[in-house]
Every structure is written in C-alpha cells, then in structure tokens.
Design a protein around this nucleic acid. Structure first.
Length: 962
RNA sequence: GCGGAUAUGGCGUAAUUGGUAGCCGCGCAAGACUUAGGAUCUUGUUCCGAGAGGAGUGGGGGUUCGAGCCCCCCUAUCCGCACCA
C-alpha cells in the first residue's frame, strides 16, 4: 500500500478539529508550558513559506512537550488591525473589517493544511471588541498612572494629586516631560484645567506636542519605516516634520528596567544587544554652564578666588543651560558650545548682529525633513549666536553656536564641544576654524599639536593632560574626579541618559483601536472603564476629512454623553454633557503588546485575564518569531508587561522567557536566458558561452522544478513565450538562479499550499526544518524536497512491511535507542534540521536490518516522529491498533546501557575504516597502548592483525583505525 | 562610523562542543529492474593523482600531543543602529 498523504492528512486534520484534540486543559497537576508564535497580520497575499517556518518549529516543540506530559498552551490569533486593509478600503471602498475577515479565513485555511496543534478555542483578534476592550483598558490604566522613580514602579495618579496638595513637588522623583516645581499652596490655587495640565506632565499615557512625520497627501502621521528619502513609501508623497499634539506612552520611564530585565531572559546575545543599543543607556554628567553676555548685562564674577560667591552666582543665574556629557573628564578641553536649532534659549541669547543669520539658519534647519538631515550627516552646518558661556571649571569664555548636529530629542539638546576628543566636534571645529585643545593623551604627559591631527582621539583611554586638577589621572579617574567636583560645586551631577524615546501612540487612521477619550474643551477625559469597549464606529469614507481630521471625523455617531455614559450622535454635542471623542486611533503595536496574556484567559469578559490563569501559566516559556521585531513589538510588549506587573496583574516581570528568532526566508529566483541574437531562442544555462549574448528573464519558480524548466508550462505562461524555442542540455532546460527578496514581481513567491498539495503537509514540515538551523536566514529552495518526501515514503514502507512483526533484534533496538537519544537532544536545543537527518539515518539502518524490526521498535519511533510529521505518525499509530491519538503517548526513554556498550566496546564501521573506543587505565603510556588494546578481550575480537594507525589520546579513550 | 553575526565539497548542511572533517539530503556518475519512467533499488561521489600518496574547513599567525571549534590580525558577506554628545 502506498503512502497516500492526500487522503491521510485531511482526514486527521478533520479528526483533530472535531475532537478538539489540541484544546488546552485548565491547570491540573501537570507541569505547564507556554509556547507562543508571533501572531500574523493577515495580509491579502496569504501565507508564503517563510511564515510557517517559525510556526513549524514551535509546533514541534509544543507537541514534544505534550508528549512529555506537559499541559501546553499553544495558541494562535491575528494581529488584525493595520494599514494595508485600510489602504485597500480607500481604494475600493470595501470596509477593512470585511477585508480582514476574508484574509483571516484564508490564513486559517492555509494554517490548517499544515497540521498545527494550535488551540483554536483560544484564538484572539486584535480588532475584536471583546479583545480591544482590554487594550483600551490598559491605555486608561497608563493614563491613570505615573512613574515614581523612588518607588521604582508605576503609581496611581491620585496619589500624585494627594501629594501635590500636601507638599507640592517637594521631594518628588517621578518620570515627567518637563521638571516642574511648585508648592502645595500653589497647587491648591490652580484651577482644574491647570491641574490637569500639570498631571499630563506625569501620566504614563500623555498628550503632548511631538515632532512627527506628517504626510499631507495621505493625511496621516507615518512611522519612520514608512518614509524613504523624504517621501512616503506608499504613493511617494512628500513627508514633512510637523509638531503635532499626539498621545505618547512614557516608555522612557521604564528604560532602566528594560535594560536590567535583559539579564533575566534567555534570548540571543545579538537580540539583547539590539535592544540595549536601542535603549542606549549612557552614563555621564549633567553640567550647568552659565552665560556671559557680551554687552555685560550678565557677567559672572571671576571666581578664581571668589570662593562660594561665584558658585552662588552661577547657581542663581537665570541664564544658564544644562548640557549632558559622557566625557566629563574632557571639560578642560571645551572650546565651544552647541545648541540644537530647536533650543529655546537661542532667541534669548542671540546678539542683535547675529540675529538675522541665526534666525535664517534655525528656520532652514527646522524645515528640513528628518530624512534630508540624515542623508546629509556628513555636511557640517551651523552658525554663531554671538553669545558666550563660561566654563565653570576654568572661567573661560566659550562661544555658543547653533548646529543641527546636536539633536533636540537627546539629552538637553545642548552640548559642550570638545573637538580634540569627539569626532563630530572635531569636524565642526575644522569647518569653522575653531580652536582644538588636547586634554587626553595615550601616554602620560605627552602631547602633540592638534592642528596636525587628521582625526579626533575619541577613545576613553589614556591620561588627562592640560586639565587642571585632574592632569595626570587616568581617564576613568578623571571622570570621577570631575563629577565629584561639579557636584561639590553644585553645578551639575552624575546622571544617566537614554536614547529610548517615548512611543508616539496616535495614528490618524481608521482601522485601529479607538482611544477611550473624550474632550472637554482641550482637556482629555477618560471614558469610564465600565463602559469599555468603546467600539470603532462605522464611517462611509476612510480618507481624512476635508478639514484634515482623521477618518473618524467622518463618523456621525462619535460623541460621548457623560450623563448617559454612552456614545451618541455628533449632533448632540453641546460641550456641557455631550463631548467629542478622540479621532485618532492606536498604532499597530497597541493590540500586540499584551496578547500573550489574553491567551491565558481569552473568553474572560470581566478581566483582562484572571489571577488564577496568570498564576498558573506565569509567562511565555518559549516565544518564536522574527528578530525584525527587536526594537518594536519586543520592546513595547516588555514595557506593557512591566506596567501590568507594577499593577500586580502580571506575575513575571519579563513576558518572554526564552526567545528563538527564526531566520528570514529569502526568495530564490529562477531565470531563463534569451538569446540577444534570436528573440525566440532560450539557451540552457550550461550552454551559455558568454553572458553578454543573453538576457536573463525572471521565470515563475512554480514552473521550475530542481532548476529544470517545465517547457510546456513556460510556453503557456505568457503569450510572448508561446513560440519559444530552446537549446537544451541533455534534453532539459536548466535555469539559472539568484537569491533575492521574496516578492511577486520576481516570481519567486512560494505558496505553501502548492507544496502541501504536491508533497503533503508532513513533507513540507520536515523540509522546512531540514533546510537548516531555524535561526539562520536562508533562501527558499525546493531542490531538496524530493529527498525528504522520499524519506516519508520509505518510513511508510518500513512500517507497511514490518507492522505485524512482534519481535525486534538487538541491532534494531540499538538503532532505536540511539535515535531516541539524538532526537531528544536535538529538540531540546532546537536543532530540528539535525533531527530530520537522524530520522533518515534511523530509517535507512532499520530498512537495512530487514526482518529484525518489530513493534517494540516501531511504536516508540512513531512517537518520536509525531512532533515533526504528525499526520503520518497518527495514521501509523492507529494502524498499530491504538484507538487514542498519539498525543496521549508517552515520550520514549532511551536505555543508556544500549548506548554505552556501543561507544566503548564495539567497533563502528565508518567510511570503510573500523574504529574503536576503549577504556584504558589512566596511567598508561603511549607505548603500552597497543599491547593493552591487543590484550583487551573486546578488542581482540575485532582486531585482525596489526592496526593501521593507533592514535593515543591522553584520556581514557583510544581510537584505533584498522 | 558603532554594534552583532556568519564563512566547511558543485549546493543545503553535519561534526559527540578541543579528539581521525565532510554525517544526512540534493545534484552528478555508473549499474539493476522495466515497453516506458520525472517510479524504485544498488554502488560511487571533498580536491589533486592511474597509483601509492598528498592537500584540505575564507586568508595569515598563535596556543595545544591534537584546532572547523580557543586566542590575535586581516578579508568578504549578511543583519541591526546610525551626528545619541
């Protein structure tokens, strides 16, 4: 009987579905294990072979854990909000909900064909009101909390209010947009509006003016990756930087914890490093530099011997500004200061004679798009303000410049420039001919003239020179000494800066979660939690409104009635009891930030998830997904989880214990070569003498098998190929190939359905694993799939002819036990490609053994294969007379005795040579080895005459080649 | 520029983690069975050499009895970040 996968696979898939075989149990005594895949965005293009790669790996592990007796949570769902469905809606008028629904149906169909063990009873969709209710709820909690640095966690905003009423900002250490200082008395005189403004400065979800990529033509803010070269990726419309009022999440408050948490998780070093870079922690100092106006309006007394007075004057100077530096030790080498073009001080300090020039520069710099600026990083630009600062340690006058190489978003937007020891300052100084002073030297007391330098000396090594009281110290010491000094002087302090910016949370789009926020005038008010979800209203048009409002501006029923506590018609807005609702929606990462928690208790309408559920499952044990989410989803989700942890909801601070990044699958394009001399002649790859004589043309990989072109299908593919003639080699047309991105335009997209139809799901599963290590990026290539398919046929045959054997030979059992050990080890280290090889070896060896294979061997082997090729395993399992599914079988244990014998006593045939390993006394010497070997009873049996080569190994093991 | 990774036959890869490199699969070659085969099976296949033998894990050096694996210096490719003070 032949291996008929197209009959077996759908039958078992149907059985599993009908009997809810993969439904997750609730708690119980069994140990738990949570295996999660990054849920997909259901795009119109459907799945390609890259998607299932990670799903197959996680499915293997989930099935393996089940066979090991674990209660496994292995859910799947859809990240269903997103731009493509909305763009499609704008073009066609079809509601994104319908498009999304269709795409989900197609995804589900494709996923089902591959035989995953997902618990579909727990499916979530981010666009489902029952799901986004909790996305909105979390947003409200973020709105209602602030981050208390002292407590090291999020605290209710009500506590902050109480504190303000009692002691103002006195002693407050909280994450905020801007440092504020007021007393309790002042607070108590503030009106409600003013108080709300103050609180907004602290909320973890806050409304603030932020620079964004604004695309007027599309009417929306775009993410950085949606903008290329100053133009929108979609449509190619110009994008400008614009200051807009936007919701943001104060993720920066969690920066330190996001760094620290990386210590606790089992992720690859490279991904941890990506996150560390993104968070960008730098230690250094904040220093205040007082200003000196040229015309003498403010002049700091020469403090060389003025003692406390000078410090007093610096501290009390209204005109001072704060800089951040990671190199406080170089403060003696400061030769100019630079402010970013957005710096508020510029207008105050610029002297009249420089005003025009500075204003022109600032206007120019501000209007440049982020992209333009980044593209011209090498170009030095800037302008002198006419103003001077005073170096608090040397009392030198230092010119203040403005330049866009200083960024508004980092530190304080102002720097002390040390051109000798910072490459950017160096370039600036050279360009504007500013002085350069060396203050660090590799060797003690040895300096050179910076005028001769071609580059700055940036390394944090060596000794301080020309640096007052730190001269002669090592750089590290000098840093400490300078910070101590400025702290003692009260003009600065040790501090840590992060590159991580707060996450902009508003999108001027329709297809996303609505904000549960309405506006009383300018004041945002939360919709009561009991009224959630605030459902996304229908609109007739998905474009921005004529007045430039987001698409939700088209909704006619999008107002909040405070008294009735429900959404009402816009016409009822009176700004007394009925108010307009927020028109922007949440970004894609909102719904994906907490979905793993919801899977634990997905049908709970009263809570995000129950304490019992999270208490049982804890967090995700294994998360599988692409590394491209390293700076997006994986940061947001960790932040989200930490916040919920602070609220006492999540029980683990880190959401994803172990993370495997599956490598990207690239496309492998095929080419035919058209002769330039004859437009209808196509030359097989091996016959081309000179590539200049032919034109390579992309050809659909679906009409090519193992680089051999299906000529008939090629002729039928497109009219212009109908009369194609071929120069064949060995009767075949061999195509060329190249690795490119998988894309429709290159005809190299491989759809898993085609492969399932042709070879079956089990073959696809095995082949995707066989391709190479899961983590490695690799081109998709079907050239080897036949071999894997052949293996399944062999396995089928092996069972077919041995299934009734009752006895097993010792050799067969040995093969089995070797296989058990190898497969178990392989799965534990996620080395699934070697597992497939192991199966093939096992199958070949058992086939060679012939009659000695019985059920004693075949049954455990079926269990081993089940995670990889569940359909064939299930079928064989039942053919062997079991009436429960293979999921209930126990994972076989190997007998170490069976393996020990093999490595120590018996020879192994290996590539035509006979090799042994023998245990020898520890104190044996090289000369004694041969005699010892000959004397060994185990060896004597196998040794015919003198061994060819004896390799002495100073351990207890010896290798002998005969 | 900074950071991370990778480099092994014609190709995808493997190597008990420092112990005789090239397992498994593809491809290729020869053969068997076949009216036929895009089926199945057998044998061979790192390179050079008829052979004995020699060379060999991107290149160069080092540690070691022993290195694909560890250390140093290059080279190439991929990925992430990019004026982050």
């Amino acid at each position: 009987m032949d291996y008929n996968f197209s009959e077996i696979e759908p039958r078992w898939q149907e059985y599993w579905r009908e009997h809810h075989v993969y439904r997750t149990g609730d708690a119980g005594d069994r140990p738990h294990y949570y295996v999660l895949d990054m849920f997909p965005y259901p795009s119109g293009a459907g799945l390609h072979v890259g998607h299932p790669l990670g799903y197959i790996a996680s499915d293997i592990y989930a099935r393996y854990k089940r066979l090991h007796g674990y209660n496994v949570l292995h859910p799947m769902g859809y990240d269903a909000y997103g731009l493509p469905a909305e763009q499609y809606a704008i073009q066609t008028g079809q509601h994104p909900a319908i498009t999304t629904e269709q795409n989900i149906a197609r995804y589900r169909e494709q996923l089902d064909k591959i035989g995953f063990s997902f618990d579909w009873d727990r499916e979530v969709r981010t666009c489902d009101p029952k799901y986004y209710k909790w996305t909105q709820w979390t947003f409200l909690q973020l709105f209602k909390h602030y981050y208390d640095n002292g407590a090291g966690k999020a605290m209710p905003i009500a506590q902050l209010e109480a504190r303000f009423a009692k002691q103002g900002t006195e002693g407050l250490d909280a994450a905020c947009t801007e440092e504020l200082a007021f007393t309790a008395e002042e607070w108590n005189t503030y009106d409600e509006n003013r108080r709300q403004q103050v609180l907004m400065n602290y909320r973890l979800a806050y409304l603030a003016d932020t620079y964004v990529n604004w695309c007027a033509e599309l009417g929306t803010v775009l993410a950085n990756d949606e903008v290329v070269g100053g133009l929108s990726v979609r449509g190619g419309y110009p994008v400008e930087r614009k200051l807009m009022r936007q919701w943001s999440l104060r993720i920066s408050a969690y920066a330190q914890r996001l760094v620290d948490g990386l210590e606790q998780v089992d992720w690859t070093d490279s991904l941890k490093e990506i996150q560390r870079n993104w968070i960008g922690r730098s230690e250094g100092a904040a220093v205040w530099f007082p200003l000196e106006m040229e015309n003498g309006e403010l002049r700091i007394e020469n403090s060389a011997d003025a003692g406390d007075n000078s410090q007093f004057s610096i501290l009390n100077s209204q005109l001072k500004f704060e800089i951040f530096t990671t190199r406080p030790d170089t403060i003696f080498g400061v030769t100019f200061m630079v402010l970013c073009p957005e710096h508020e001080l510029i207008s105050e300090i610029t002297t009249p004679e420089h005003k025009a020039e500075v204003e022109e520069y600032v206007t120019w710099a501000k209007n440049r798009s982020e992209r333009e600026r980044q593209a011209e990083v090498k170009k030095v630009s800037g302008v002198f303000t006419g103003a001077f600062a005073v170096n608090p340690l040397t009392n030198e006058r230092i010119p203040i410049w403005v330049s866009d190489y200083v960024l508004a978003g980092y530190g304080t937007g102002a720097i002390m420039a040390v051109p000798a020891h910072d490459s950017r300052d160096f370039a600036f100084a050279r360009h504007f001919n500013l002085p350069i002073r060396q203050v660090v030297s590799l060797e003690k007391d040895v300096t050179s003239d910076p005028a001769t330098w071609t580059e700055s000396m940036d390394a944090k090594t060596g000794y301080s020179v020309n640096s007052g009281f730190v001269t002669g110290m090592k750089v590290k010491e000098a840093m400490r000494a300078v910070i101590d000094k400025i702290e003692e002087m009260g003009i600065g302090h040790r501090t840590v800066n992060f590159r991580l910016r707060d996450a902009i949370f508003s999108r001027q789009r329709y297809w996303g979660e609505p904000f549960p926020i309405y506006y009383k005038g300018n004041m945002p008010c939360p919709v009561p939690e009991e009224c959630l979800p605030l459902e996304l209203p229908d609109v007739k048009e998905f474009k921005p409104t004529a007045t430039g409002e987001p698409p939700l501006g088209h909704a006619t029923r999008w107002a909040w009635d405070e008294r009735q506590r429900c959404v009402v018609e816009n016409s009822k807005i009176d700004n007394a009891t009925v108010f307009p609702l927020e028109l922007s929606t949440m970004p894609g990462f909102a719904g994906s930030s907490g979905y793993y928690l919801r899977y634990m208790d997905p049908r709970n309408d009263n809570e995000y998830f129950s304490a019992k559920a999270v208490g049982y499952w804890q967090n995700v044990d294994l998360y599988v997904g692409g590394a491209e989410h390293g700076t997006g989803h994986l940061i947001y989700a960790r932040f989200w989880n930490k916040f919920l942890f602070d609220l006492g909801m999540a029980v683990k601070e880190e959401p994803f214990q172990k993370l495997i990044n599956q490598g990207m699958i690239q496309g492998r394009s095929n080419f035919v070569y058209r002769s330039k001399a004859d437009n209808n002649l196509y030359i097989s790859k091996g016959l081309i003498k000179d590539m200049d004589e032919v034109t390579p043309i992309h050809v659909d990989i679906n009409i090519v098998a193992s680089d051999v072109l299906d000529i008939e299908r090629f002729r039928a593919w497109r009219p212009e190929f109908a009369d194609a003639r071929f120069e064949l080699e060995d009767g075949r047309y061999i195509c060329g190939w190249e690795v490119e991105k998988m894309s429709k335009s290159m005809f190299n997209v491989q759809n898993p359905d085609d492969l399932v139809a042709r070879y079956g799901a089990d073959t696809l599963r095995l082949y995707e694993m066989f391709l190479g290590p899961v983590e490695q990026a690799k081109p998709w290539d079907t050239n080897g799939i036949e071999g894997v398919h052949r293996f399944l046929k062999k396995i089928w045959k092996l069972y077919d002819s041995n299934i009734d054997n009752q006895t097993s030979s010792k050799a067969a059992l040995k093969v089995l036990h070797q296989t058990i050990k190898k497969i178990t080890d392989d799965i534990e280290r996620f080395s699934f490609n070697t597992s497939v090889s192991t199966f093939m070896i096992c199958c070949n060896q058992l086939t060679d053994l012939g009659d000695g294979v019985g059920r004693e061997v075949l049954e455990p082997l079926t269990v081993l294969i089940a995670p990889f090729a569940p359909h064939i395993a299930e079928e064989l399992w039942h053919r062997m007379g079991h009436d429960t599914t293979i999921c209930d079988a126990p994972w076989p244990e190997y007998d170490p005795q069976m393996l020990v014998e093999d490595t120590v006593k018996y020879p192994v045939q290996f590539n035509g040579k006979m090799r042994f390993m023998l245990e020898l006394p520890a104190d044996i010497d090289q000369a004694g080895v041969l005699d010892a070997v000959k004397a060994a009873p185990e060896a004597g049996k196998w040794l015919n005459g003198e061994p060819k080569k004896v390799i002495f190994v100073p351990k207890k093991i010896i290798n002998i080649v005969c």
